[in-house]
């Protein structure tokens, strides 16, 4: 359940602690009011989305996110499988999901977009680029929240 449109919840599925840290810092710098939740793999991600208590220490409760940032290469269950499950689940079908991954592979990109990812972003190597991406995500969050006023009901 969405808490407040002005306080978007962003769920980040990434197993790399470095990336988690960088993303957290980037959000803190550009989008401080966003509530970030982290999960480290596909299993935890699906657990979180389906209401189970997340094991990650970075989040204390589990509100349904306004945006999911999904890494593809994760242990246990990778992002591709997770994406398929999310799009197959009627309750999660509408969840805005942006793939944020190191893989610049065209095949991965084509696959994710075909399976319903809202966007596909290759992890930048420069922090400034990451800041740009976070800014645009923030904008994306706000616009998508406005465009989907009924997402409460869908959730």
């Amino acid at each position: 359940m969405k808490t407040d449109t002005r306080n978007p919840v962003i769920l980040i599925a990434d197993d790399d602690p470095d990336d988690q840290l960088l993303i957290q810092e980037a959000f803190a710098e550009r989008c401080a009011n966003c509530q970030l939740c982290f999960v480290a793999n596909g299993v935890e991600l699906m657990g979180y989305l389906r209401g189970a208590a997340p094991e990650s220490e970075l989040s204390t409760d589990c509100p349904l996110p306004d945006l999911l940032l999904l890494d593809l290469n994760m242990p246990l269950k990778d992002g591709r499988q997770a994406l398929l499950e999310i799009r197959a689940d009627p309750a999660l079908r509408e969840l805005p999901t942006i793939v944020l991954t190191t893989s610049g592979n065209d095949e991965d990109k084509a696959f994710c977009l075909a399976q319903g990812a809202n966007d596909y972003i290759v992890k930048p190597s420069r922090y400034t680029e990451l800041l740009t991406i976070v800014t645009s995500l923030k904008i994306y969050c706000n616009t998508s929240a406005m465009q989907q006023p009924d997402s409460d009901n869908n959730a």
């Binding site: 470095d18 960088l22 190191t102 992890k123 190597s125 420069r126 922090y127």
Partner: peptide, 8 residues
């Protein structure tokens, strides 16, 4: 990538 990002 990490080296670059953190040096940034």
């Amino acid at each position: 990538r990490k080296i670059q990002a953190f040096s940034d």
